[in-house]
């Protein structure tokens, strides 16, 4: 009686456990909840690769149970061959199928990796807006060279418009710029310039972060990414230009000093050639 109740309770618990999945639909975060073209494509590649691998994994799991069930001790069958060891046909199938899947995975990943190359502009997305990014200890400086404005720890982007990022770091060896919901991660290195193209497709506020450990303030090196309409973007540029602070050489020398959890800041006017100067400061002077 007790055994039967236990079995019934186990079955009910198993069924009830599926209820936990109900909450999953709206709670996808990060790369699983993309809001940009690149992130969408990356999620698609991730799911397609998992599906291709599961083609082998799921049948193997199901067959493990089916064979255990068929050849159980209480169910004698004629085709039970405990000493059977080799079949050319079966060997070629269970080696051949995974080989074909790996080949398809390889082609798929190769093509998509080149298509989503961070340096490559997004096809058919028009002329990009330019943003220069400087990873500092432990904050992010964003310079809009075309608008001559800059921000700290806040990035504002227009929706459905491509943005081209030029990235470097200063006063901190290496960081990684990553907005999981919008697209690829890319490293920033002192004395070097990396590039990234992103195209957000939904308005909203997203989390940006540094995914490369770089010292004491690493865990606080987050920033907000506001994706707004084209009209709001223009209004924001106008607001930024009215800011009383400007990013002169002297201000930059203060900003580059190590601080943790800096509040967002807005600068109208940026010292000319600041981004290039930051990169060049790590290069040895050339002698004639």
């Amino acid at each position: 009686m007790l055994h039967r109740s236990f079995k019934t309770a186990s079955k009910l618990l198993l069924i009830a456990s599926f209820l936990f999945l109900c909450g999953c639909e709206n709670n996808f975060t990060g790369v699983l909840n993309p809001k940009g073209v690149v992130a969408f494509k990356e999620r698609q590649l991730l799911f397609d690769c998992i599906a291709l691998m599961l083609i082998v994994v799921i049948p193997v799991i199901i067959m493990s149970f089916a064979f255990a069930f068929r050849y159980r001790q209480s169910h004698p069958v004629k085709d039970y061959k405990p000493n059977w060891s080799h079949s050319v046909l079966l060997e070629s199938i269970w080696w051949g199928v995974p080989c074909v899947i790996i080949l398809i995975l390889g082609i798929l990943t190769w093509k998509m990796t080149h298509k989503l190359d961070p340096y490559r502009p997004i096809d058919g997305a028009g002329k990009p807006m330019k943003v220069q990014v400087v990873a500092l200890p432990w904050k992010w400086l964003f310079i809009y060279p075309e608008q001559n404005i800059a921000t700290v720890n806040t990035l504002v982007l227009p929706v459905n418009k491509q943005t081209e990022f030029f990235l470097t770091s200063d006063n901190v060896p290496m960081s990684a710029f990553f907005v999981p919901q919008i697209g690829s991660q890319i490293y920033t290195m002192a004395g070097m310039r990396t590039r990234l193209h992103l195209l957000p497709t939904s308005e909203g506020i997203y989390e940006g972060l540094n995914s490369q450990y770089n010292g004491d303030g690493f865990s606080e090196m987050h920033f907000k990414v506001k994706v707004v309409s084209q009209d709001e973007m223009k209004k924001w540029f106008a607001k930024a230009k009215r800011s009383s602070k400007s990013l002169s050489q002297a201000t930059y020398r203060v900003v580059r000093q190590p601080t943790i959890a800096d509040p967002a800041a807005l600068y109208s006017g940026v010292a000319p050639g600041l981004f290039k100067q930051i990169i060049k400061s790590y290069h040895a002077p050339t002698h004639p």
Binding site: V37, R43, Q44, F47, D48, A51, K115, I122, D123, G124
Partner: peptide, 18 residues
């Protein structure tokens, strides 16, 4: 494979630029 194509690939597919 077909069930993935039929039920899941459409959810994760993005048909825009890129």
């Amino acid at each position: 494979l077909l069930l993935y194509i039929g039920f899941f690939s459409t959810i994760v597919y993005y048909g825009g630029a890129a």
